[in-house]
């Protein structure tokens, strides 16, 4: 039985230390190399459900403050893990550079991330190495670009009043 009040990093015996973010939520910054290992250790420590996985594009905040030793990159993959036993959440943040937007897939640890990773690929263009079905999920197959990237325009169409009289 897990100790009450221990952080997820302590429970899983990780070398990374977690920081407590806004409203007391535990955040763990991991490198891409340690990503799978950390997720696996957390799963073995009782964080058995991957509640959420999404991408973030920090194009406009490349110099954002991060804890010591973490290099800010353009993309972030944010994973929310949940322990049903000790009612605790932990959030992993993985920095993904623009030049090589590839992270290993969590599918083999958490099969429930299949749709979420496909969504992150579709909307951000971050590739998940080893994903069994690495295709677009929300946009049509032949769509160009990744719409949620900050350099992708919203695609706003100016409102046209069709019956308005034209210029003479």
């Amino acid at each position: 039985m897990a100790a009450v009040g221990a952080s997820a990093a302590e429970l899983a015996g990780l070398s990374e230390t977690s920081s407590i973010g806004a409203s007391g939520q535990e955040v763990l910054h991991v490198t891409r190399e340690r990503y799978l290992e950390v997720a696996g250790a957390l799963r073995d420590a009782g964080f058995e459900m991957c509640a959420d996985l999404c991408g973030v594009d920090y194009l406009r905040h490349l110099d954002r403050p991060l804890p010591e030793g973490v290099t800010p990159e353009r993309f972030e993959i944010v994973v929310n893990l949940l322990s049903l036993e000790i009612h605790q959440r932990v959030r992993l943040r993985v920095q993904v550079p623009d030049s090589d937007p590839v992270v290993p897939t969590l599918f083999n640890l958490y099969p429930g991330t299949e749709n979420m990773e496909r969504e992150a690929f579709d909307l951000y263009g971050v590739c998940f190495e080893g994903h069994p079905d690495h295709t677009r999920i929300l946009m049509p197959d032949d769509w160009e670009g990744h719409p949620l990237r900050k350099d992708y325009s919203v695609g706003r169409v100016p409102v046209q009043f069709k019956q308005a009289p034209g210029p003479r």
Binding site: Q25, A51, H61, R64
Partner: peptide, 23 residues
Amino acid sequence: PPGEVYTAIESPRGELGCYLVAD
């Protein structure tokens, strides 16, 4: 103020979460 947060509630269909990043 800048920060990031994940909140979750129980919707009729399950865990409804919101991940918000403010700058």
